[in-house]
Amino acid sequence: MTTARAAVAAVVDPELRVITIEELGILRSVAEEPATGRVVVTITPTYTGCPAMDVIRADIRRALAAAGHPQAEVRTVYTPAWSTDWITEAGRAKLARAGIAPPGPVRPAGPVPLTLTVRCPWCGSPETEQISRFGSTACKALRRCRSCTEPFDHLKAL
């Protein structure tokens, strides 16, 4: 029987299909009550309005049931607020391989006029430009590479 923690950690994000919810940093805790075998999972959303949360909750319950933990509760917490800094190194590498430029470090508070470059995940060129600040999901921006001309998604620092 897979441990509850391992089963939940392997759940894949429904909108970033290449990384797990653990690598994305939205899985906060998995606790098993020894007496009842009931599993309590705590997650946090990337964005407040993230429409993938319902699917993630269902996927977690499904993964736990398949691993022999039919009794499960998924709780959502909002504090501390999720940050792209919580995405693991392995997660960043997987995103880049899938053509999604991983986020840079979160900027300190206050207006910072300079923008750090985002490298093209396809050819590695730093010569890229933003097409749209908002992409196919709330967490992504759309960019284009000026060297290889390929468009690509960029996970915004948050």
Binding site: P45, Y47, T48, G49, C50, P51, F134, T137, A138
Partner: peptide, 8 residues
């Protein structure tokens, strides 16, 4: 997307 954030 901005509408979705506001809704959240």
């Amino acid at each position: 997307n901005i509408a979705l954030d506001q809704l959240g």
